[in-house]
Computed example of a mutant assay.
Amino acid sequence: WYNIGQLSIQRAAAWVLEKYYQDFTIYNPYLDRVPSKKKHSGNSSFKYYDVDGNEENVEGHTRAVLTASARRRDSAHNERFYEEHEYERRVRKRRARLVTAAEEAFTHIKRMHEEQGPSVPMDPHEAAQSIFPSLARALQKYLRITRQQPRHTMESILQHLAICLAHDMSPRAFLEKYLVSSPVIQNDKEHRGVQSWGLVCEQLLSRPINSGTIFQLRQADVCLLCSVSRIPHFSIAEEIIHPKSNKFVLRLNSETSV
């Protein structure tokens, strides 16, 4: 929910898009379905054969198959629950390995003036290339399980790592881009000069927004449905409190401890 003033529908749509790029999480279509290791087959696991040609037996077997299929459908929510739980466990495990690998990799880099013995000077990009192999495997596995690998190329990761090393950023600061999926503007693919969106509304776009106005913004797989509601008018009346209503007395009895 956002507070917005009296704007036209077109101006309100532009304002909503600014908030979208600032506050929303990056939409990942690959996570619409929780990844699962199990491969479900569409074929039924039950087979029956009519050897004697008895129709009653055929009907009985049919009912048994349908009952078993219904039970399997009823247990689908349990399978989904355990799949999501297992997926979250795997993500936490890969995340812990990635954080550990990044912390160990950053310990191998020091500023040249901090090194006492002989050393070969490297610029930030060369330093990033030297420590990247030690954390590449853990980062690749984490990006794969979180379905982020289409968004990050090796060159963009090296460039981000070089910037973090040049400014003495911590390993956590380097990983923040991959561990946190918001805001949308941090996505490298969103860094374009012009973002094209479609605006759908039943009213003229030049008209002001009113309570009940609904419009939709579309871009590829992303759809933002926006509805406008009016904030109610507040009627505030002064209430006078009696001066003696804020006074207290202490009542003592035989069981009161003072």
Rank of each mutant, 00 (worst) to 15 (best):
S130M: 10
T153V: 01
I231F: 05
A12C: 15
P171H: 07
L7W: 14
Q140S: 15
E55P: 01
T100A: 08
Y27Q: 06
R207L: 08
F24Q: 13
D52H: 14
C226K: 00
N3A: 15
H77D: 11
E103N: 06
D32T: 11
E55N: 04
Y49L: 12
S41K: 08
S196I: 11
V184L: 08
L139T: 01
L17M: 08
Q195W: 02
N43L: 07
I4C: 15
Y82C: 01
Q140E: 10
N43H: 08
F81R: 08
A136S: 06
Y142V: 03
I214C: 11
P232Q: 01
H152C: 01
N54Y: 06
A14V: 15
H233Q: 15
F174Y: 03
H40K: 13
D50I: 06
H167P: 00
W197T: 00
I4M: 15
V51N: 13
E59K: 11
Q140T: 11
R92Y: 09
Y48T: 05
E104R: 14
A101N: 03
C164V: 05
S41Y: 07
I209Y: 01
L135Y: 06
L205H: 00
Q219T: 09
S257I: 15
G53F: 09
A128C: 07
W15I: 06
A76D: 06
R207E: 07
E190C: 09
A70H: 08
Y82P: 01
M122Y: 08
S8F: 10
K189P: 00
R230V: 04
E88C: 07
V194A: 03
E83F: 02
A162F: 04
P171K: 06
Y178A: 04
E86V: 12
F132T: 02
Q195S: 04
D23I: 04
F174I: 01
R90H: 06
I163S: 05
I145K: 08
L98C: 06
R89N: 09
H85L: 15
I4H: 12
C226S: 01
Q219D: 04
V222G: 00
L98V: 02
S235R: 12
K37M: 08
R172F: 07
V65D: 02
V184W: 07
L252E: 04
R192D: 04
F248I: 02
H242E: 10
E104F: 12
P35F: 06
Q219A: 11
R172N: 10
L224N: 00
A128T: 09
R151G: 00
V91P: 10
L204T: 02
E79Q: 11
I145F: 02
R92E: 14
K37G: 11
R72M: 05
I163V: 10
A237L: 03
R94N: 11
T100P: 00
K93M: 11
E155S: 10
A173H: 11
R111I: 01
Y21E: 00
